[in-house]
């Protein structure tokens, strides 16, 4: 079983928004970034995986098991970090551990203590006395202390400074070293993923725009910039998004190599960042 997480035709209907038969797969040993603007369906998807919401259709398999029928076993093997809430803010770190740890069959106090030490966390502090970054680290320590095979992180870095974010990324890179574990990481701060993500799943308006390797995206998508005169180039018809300004235009294309060959040097073509890709997809072809 090489797939840690398989989502197939998953749907969830709300009045004003729905998740439309989304599918993607995360393999062992890799980090998948789950990106998209706020309200695109990232949290809904994660809540469906964790069975916090009831799906209307489709299938979710974690470690090859149905996420509802094998709920308890699956959760024993998942480590999660959410942006919020943090459990009972009135408890101390130690009390929180005491309450949560016994539920995990493979809990390891030693590992937990190591992480607390590494993060400089005092067990006697109440959760509400901790900074946002520290709260995230408490949860990260919990998520990493029970031999979880799949880490599910829902916007773990939002509101955190670059130093803490970098620390998290280093830890995630450590996690996948043994080739058995995987990380599913939802975020709208894509610079975190530009570096370490192996796969990117991009969701917008409840639909998956793409779910592929980051290398594929970085080697193929292109940001084309040129003078207004170049706008009638037929290749631009395939552009995902286009933005005109007074002096020229910028467009996102899916296949920059083809564009390269088809143009006569009148454009500048650059590698886009994930952020630019999200921006162009969500804004579309407005002027």
């Amino acid at each position: 079983m090489n797939n840690l997480l398989e989502v197939k035709n998953l749907s969830k209907k709300y009045q004003e928004f729905s998740l439309q038969e989304i599918s993607f797969t995360l393999k062992k040993g890799y980090i998948m970034g789950f990106i998209g603007p706020n309200g695109a369906g990232k949290s809904t998807t994660i809540k469906l995986i964790m069975n916090l919401l009831k799906r209307d259709g489709g299938e979710i398999r974690v470690f090859g098991l149905d996420n509802i029928r094998a709920e308890r076993e699956i959760k024993d093997r998942i480590g999660f970090v959410y942006e919020e809430p943090y459990f009972y803010e009135e408890l101390t770190v130690l009390e929180m551990k005491k309450v949560i740890a016994p539920f995990y069959s493979k809990w390891d106090d030693q590992i937990f203590d190591q992480y607390l030490k590494r993060f400089g966390l005092s067990v006697k502090k109440k959760i509400k006395e901790l900074s946002k970054g520290m709260k995230m680290k408490v949860w990260l320590a919990i998520a990493l202390s029970h031999q979880a095979e799949l880490l599910i992180l829902d916007e773990p870095t939002s509101g955190l400074d670059p130093v803490v974010r970098r620390e998290l990324l280093d830890i995630l890179a450590d996690v996948i070293q043994d080739e058995e574990k995987g990380v599913f990481f939802s975020t709208h701060i894509t610079t975190d993923l530009d570096k370490i993500a192996d796969y990117i799943t991009f969701i917008n308006n409840g639909e998956i725009i793409f779910s592929t390797t980051k290398d594929y995206i970085m080697d193929n998508y292109g940001l084309v910039k040129g003078k207004k005169a170049g706008l009638d180039n037929t290749l631009l018809k395939e552009a995902v998004g286009l933005r005109e300004n007074k002096f020229g235009f910028e467009a996102l294309v899916k296949d920059r190599n083809r564009f390269w060959k088809g143009s006569k040097g009148e454009f500048i073509i650059e590698k886009p960042t994930l952020e630019e890709i999200i921006l162009y997809y969500t804004r579309g072809k407005q002027g």
């Binding site: 890799y30 890179a173 980051k214």
Partner: peptide, 9 residues
């Protein structure tokens, strides 16, 4: 990949 902070792929 870890040292260079890039994807395993």
């Amino acid at each position: 990949a870890r040292e260079l902070q890039i994807s395993v792929i």
